[in-house]
């Protein structure tokens, strides 16, 4: 799915921030992974343990949208715009 070369990260700051935020919130941080997918826009795919999906999304998507806001702010440091997808 991704041809992301780990040596040429498209959005290192956004990735680090997203990873940090998600790990801070879930019960199972080991199961968290962030994958960069380059396309027309850079997409950051977040995977979490199935049981943690609810935490990451939050009621009415509140937590997920806060994560998106902060991660996009981080992406500004990488001079890119990113989309964030939560997958389980």
């Amino acid at each position: 799915m991704s041809d992301g070369d780990p040596n040429a990260l498209a959005a290192p700051t956004a990735e680090a921030v997203l990873d940090y935020l998600v790990r801070s919130i879930v019960d199972d941080p080991d199961a968290v992974s962030v994958e960069v997918e380059d396309g027309r826009r850079t997409t950051l795919n977040v995977r979490v343990a199935p049981g943690d999906m609810g935490r990451v999304i939050g009621r009415s998507g509140r937590v997920a949208s806060a994560i998106r806001v902060v991660t996009r702010a981080a992406a500004a440091r990488d001079d890119v715009e990113v989309d964030i997808e939560f997958l389980d």
Binding site: R23, D27, D28
Partner: peptide, 25 residues
């Protein structure tokens, strides 16, 4: 107890196998 200990332990354990960005953080 679980939820207290989990974030600390695991973030250290899990960080090792991540890319350079993770390592930097």
């Amino acid at each position: 107890g679980e939820s207290h200990s989990a974030p600390g332990d695991a973030s250290d354990g899990g960080d090792a196998d991540r890319g350079p960005a993770g390592a930097r953080a």
